[in-house]
């Protein structure tokens, strides 16, 4: 798949995933990228989380706070806001409603 198509497809989905991870526990940037990879999203370039984090902050879905990390130095930790939780629930509903049909259509088309 070419880069442009890939990034279009990934952007919205990645936003939902990031919101979900941050809602589960407060993380900083590097940790977040490691979590995404641990879940199997290996092909997502690590840096691509930052434009998304900025957008989520602008929408007031998440907030950053500087505090010391377990290894010592200060890091910016993110947590979801009330508005962010609403957005996450909306994303989940949206995803559930399209996931099955999309899978079915793609498999049907290729058969």
């Amino acid at each position: 798949m070419n880069m442009a198509m890939r990034s279009q497809l990934l952007k919205g989905i990645l936003e939902g995933c990031i919101l979900s991870i941050i809602h589960k526990e407060s993380v900083y940037g590097y940790e977040l990228s490691q979590k995404l990879q641990a879940f199997g999203l290996n092909d997502v370039s690590e840096g691509s989380i930052y434009p998304i984090l900025l957008r989520l902050q602008k929408e007031q879905f998440i907030e950053g706070e500087m505090r010391p990390s377990p290894t010592g130095p200060k890091r910016k930790y993110y947590k979801t806001t009330e508005k962010g939780l609403e957005a996450l629930i909306a994303f989940q509903q949206e995803w559930n409603s399209i996931q099955k049909p999309v899978e079915t259509i793609i498999n049907w088309g290729l058969n």
Partner: peptide, 20 residues
Amino acid sequence: ELLDHLIEAQEAGKSAQDVF
């Protein structure tokens, strides 16, 4: 934030190009 990330990634053997 980007610098902190790059330093951690560098320790894991990655280049700036891999990250960004």
